[in-house]
Nucleic acid binder design. Structure first.
Lengths: 341, 341
DNA sequence: ACTGATCATGAAAACGCTATCATAAAATTA
DNA sequence: TAATTTTATGATAGCGTTTTCATGATCAGT
């Protein structure tokens, strides 16, 4: 690899002048510039970024740490974040963490390795933050979860009110006349436990305190947060508890899998059994029947995340903890049931 | 930010000794080590990676350049690559490029900025490589396309034989008795033109040289490579050419959208119209009816990509250009049509 | 107690670059 | 022509590390 010193020697000028050419400084004579540029081209010279950064204490682009590759919802958020960043003229850099990794401990390593201007956490669990986050010295946002109780002064958070939204979801089923409602959940390991736990407890509480007849051991089936997970769980739950008339899936991925699992096992949706999901992933509008779901406002979530991070990167500002609204999306996967009970 | 010098001063030792502690060298007395480690902890000191890298001429992790965020197929490949890299103990770094970006020109910037050990291109078009690739000095792989004709000695490529696979896809429709077959395509801008063009010409040629009655202007509808694109295109094409009995969609995303578009417009799949896709994305097995498709061997593609890159990163090896096998996946979206024509 | 080996530590050079300052040459002005 | 400004360039001091080499202290063996 050629260095600036080589270019200087070969072109007959000093490294200072070569540096000026590299950085397009004005005070270089055209003739000199041309010679040096030719040598640079000939040698295929690329200035060493580490040296440059060391001197200038520069930073890398905002890094987004995604835990759980393959999660369509997170990918949709990521896509929106990328668009927003692009609009602000910022580029991004994404690191996918293994599901098993401790989100923040790994993130600290990444910070050390790349020195990013800012950090966005996508899909990590709150619990990961309790211990290790203090070492993170960079403006950060938790884009899917509520970090207000942690009280860190460089970690904002934006999230849907998962507890209330899940309660709303089952409420919609109750409104439609359903009294025997099952829940398809997520294993803690494969799904950020806080969000999963919030949705689960939101739904369970709403059912137990409402007019429905709900017994967790009988009517709840945990599963991997995936298509396959939903497919299997729906079948297993209905085999165990055949009198259910509706299912709440803790995520759309699970719901789409469940839809197919039900259909493959001879259940008609929604005539035999209704289904509602959670998240509002793009595919949810393209299933047959179209999936009813709780749609998180992905683009607002991304917009607020980017706005806050950029603001705090450039000015001294307090962190923010906001709740993003959600919407019920009607679908053909819910049938009205005339109360026969 | 504390530097190693601060730690040295505060602990009363020299920077050399502090460096030895940081790097877990053996020749430091336990007492000294403890003192220095305490100071490091107190000061929340993180060694500056740029300085470290400069001294050691280290490199950043393999960087994957993905053009076209939101493309489910590429995300599936990405997921497999990440798994394979993880198995080899390598971490990765992903940069999502705007659709409009020139893949290689951007890559050069990334190299300048990050100095990665290796580079994987996902979803970029071959044409992007013709001009700028010479400046890329790093072992690289084009994971979705054939770069053999370019003859670069640091760019391997792995790809499905898109031309032949697309021909096979329509052949399956012909085998099932269809003679009036439409094609749902992709706009060059939103889909790597080479792959799109290959699939299109493969399908068109197979139809024109086969027993089918195909007229491109009448039976082909270009569309964005997205669910929405397929949804609209299917409707438009059938409005224009109502006597089609089968559709080949140039990608599963388009096919899934088409499925819904057809159903929403009163067509039954497959009784009224058959559909076959291309790619083999996970969602394709969860549609109703299940989508017939040409499945690329995503995990093999990822495996070979990673193997080759790692090998060439560590040893002097010639580049490889391999074709990855593909499979026809049966689905309920194709009906057998008894030749009435 | 005296030599030679071992150990813990410090001093300083180097990594490749940028930026400041100094300086010689050229251009402008009086 | 002398005095002044402008311009192009070179020399050099860092940036924060690692690493080599040198040095003084401790230790074992006679």
């Amino acid at each position: 690899m050629a260095t600036i010193k080589d270019i200087a020697k070969l072109s007959g000028f000093s490294i200072g002048t070569v540096s000026r050419v590299i950085n397009n400084r004005a005070d270089v004579s055209p003739a000199t510039r041309e010679i040096i540029e030719r040598v640079i081209r000939e040698q295929n010279f690329q200035p060493n970024t580490n040296a440059k950064r060391l001197k200038q204490t520069m930073f890398s682009p905002v890094t987004i740490i995604v835990k759980g590759i393959g999660n369509t919802f997170l990918e949709a958020v990521l896509e929106e974040i990328q668009i927003n960043m692009y609009l602000h003229g910022e580029s991004i850099n994404v690191t996918f963490l293994d599901e098993r990794a401790n989100c923040v401990a790994e993130a600290v390593k990444i910070i050390a390795a790349q020195n990013p201007k800012g950090l966005i956490f996508l899909g990590g669990s709150i619990n990961n933050f309790r211990k290790d986050f203090k070492a993170v010295q960079v403006p950060s946002v938790l884009a899917t979860g509520n970090a207000s109780m942690l009280g860190y002064d460089n970690l904002s958070s934006f999230t849907t009110d998962d507890y209330r939204a899940a309660a709303d979801a089952v409420e919609h089923l109750v409104q439609a006349g359903h009294r025997r409602i099952g829940i398809l959940g997520g294993y803690p390991e494969s799904w950020p436990e806080d969000i999963g736990a919030l949705r689960l407890s939101g739904a369970v509480n709403a059912l137990e305190s409402g007019h429905a007849d709900f017994v967790k051991d009988r009517d709840y089936e945990p599963c991997a947060f995936s298509l396959q997970g939903g497919y299997n769980a729906a079948r297993n739950l209905l085999r165990r508890t055949p009198d259910l008339t509706a299912l709440f899936a803790i995520g759309d991925l699970v719901a789409v899998g469940a839809l197919k699992g039900l259909q493959d096992n001879g259940y008609r949706v929604p005539q035999d059994i209704s289904v509602i999901g959670f998240d509002g992933i793009p595919f949810a509008s393209y299933t047959n029947p179209r999936l009813a779901t709780i749609k998180q406002d992905i683009s607002l979530l991304a917009k607020r995340t980017v706005e806050d991070l950029l603001l705090r990167m450039n000015y001294q500002r307090p962190v923010l903890h906001e709740t993003i609204p959600y919407y019920f999306v009607e679908g053909e996967s819910i049938a009205v049931r005339h109360s026969s009970v």
